[in-house]
Nucleic acid binder design. Structure first.
Lengths: 235, 235
DNA sequence: CGCCATTTGTGCGTATGTATC
DNA sequence: GGATACATACGCACAAATGGC
């Protein structure tokens, strides 16, 4: 591991254990240089990384200050599937069932949205998330077959992202998300236990690989009362 | 302006105008050194910044590649007031009216939530956002008076954040956000044109200064059909 | 396969600028 | 003004990944 990463991890650990207390000032760059026997540039890279990850805040002329712990706890940032968030927030797990798994030619609206050639093959997957005996979330995923080959129903029952990153070795780069309320559709009614809610919260997700190629479009449709989204925004 | 920022801006501009095309490779660090008469470290800082802001992707041993344009458009990340987002998305401006402005002792639920001493003074502000002749968003803000002194109704009519950062010189550090649907309240009915929607989308916002002190709690209550939230998540 | 040129990644040392106290 | 601390910039050396030969 790179030296600046080692320093980063060591410092992060000392903040987590409380050795460096919240609100306190970290040793100066010069002190850290000696302590870790590194150059100033290396120490600075470690500190930059700590700031980027929300551990500390640097202040020109004053020093580097440890931020309060609770900031780091709610790191729902980045690309996480919403069911994961949901599960972790409620402290319970969700049962997932694959309601539909097919290989189709991309419909025209999808091809246009994703910038695909006509007739590109995609996997279309419907997954229903059951919580406390009720179906409350419907995920409809579209994956480009060329970019995510070998997807199976078994994989879909677990974590597709894990498959993409670990098995295929593809690096996911970024996702565009949109959240809005929509009228309930027939599909929603057939898959979810909607009671008499007339609206669902829909999260659309366009996910891209590192070269900027889009490999996924997903709609995550949540029953109104079971939807919640959290994140932490930083300046 | 720092040299690496100048290089960053120049390169970003050349990508925006299409001089550097999407998917293409940028000149190597050595070439950029000569072109901008800068050291390699400086060029690298500019490139790092470009990557952080989603313009390019660096690849060890291969080069730096321009990402597709549409990625950069939706940069709603960071801390932005939701009305700003909303306005920029529709390409029109929203009219804001301050429906209520008072200085009160923090109610107990708020004191507990924000970790305040009992009887701490806070400003309570209600603002209504009118779009196309309809009141569709109600913002209820609570600001700790000690941390945001001198707030007035006039300031609330414009940008409170701007006041905090420019006039008070306070640095806003991060915000915790939550989005969920809630039943319509009496207050919603009295302030908004709700038609017969029974639910509103509520964004709660806890905002902190750089030392980790919370100075704001806000609820932004949106009529269901007028709510939309976008962001870009990066790994 | 190995070798090599290219390109980005890491690390060091140094000098100077700027903010804070 | 002086001391301290972070910010910027330069130059150099070597490591590691990539791709062509």
């Amino acid at each position: 591991m790179a030296k600046y990463r080692q320093i980063y991890e060591r410092l992060a650990e000392r903040m987590k254990t409380g050795e460096y207390e919240a609100e306190s000032k970290l040793p100066s760059e010069t002190e850290l240089m000696h302590e870790y026997e590194a150059s100033r540039g290396t120490v600075r890279k470690a500190l930059d990384l700590l700031q980027e990850h929300g551990y500390v805040r640097k202040h020109h002329g004053k020093g580097v200050f440890v931020l309060r712990r609770d900031q780091i706890e709610f790191q729902f940032n980045g690309i996480v599937s919403f069911s994961e968030i949901y599960a972790s927030m409620l402290g319970r797990s969700i049962e997932t069932s694959v309601a539909s798994f097919e290989e189709i030619e991309a419909p025209s609206w999808l091809a246009e949205r994703m910038g695909l050639e006509p007739a590109t093959l995609v996997y279309r997957i419907e997954r229903v998330r059951n919580f406390d005996g009720e179906n409350v979330i419907l995920d409809v995923n579209y994956f480009v077959k060329d970019l995510v080959p070998g997807l199976t129903k078994q994989i879909a029952e677990h974590s597709i992202y894990q498959y993409i990153e670990r098995e295929l070795g593809q690096q996911i780069s970024y996702a565009k998300r949109k959240i809005a309320a929509e009228d309930v559709t027939e599909l929603d009614r057939s898959r979810l236990d909607l009671h008499d809610y007339e609206y669902v919260i829909v999260i659309t997700n366009d996910t891209f690989l590192y070269e900027g190629r889009q490999f996924e479009y997903t709609e995550s449709r949540h029953r109104l009362d079971k939807f919640q989204f959290s994140d932490v925004a930083r300046r």
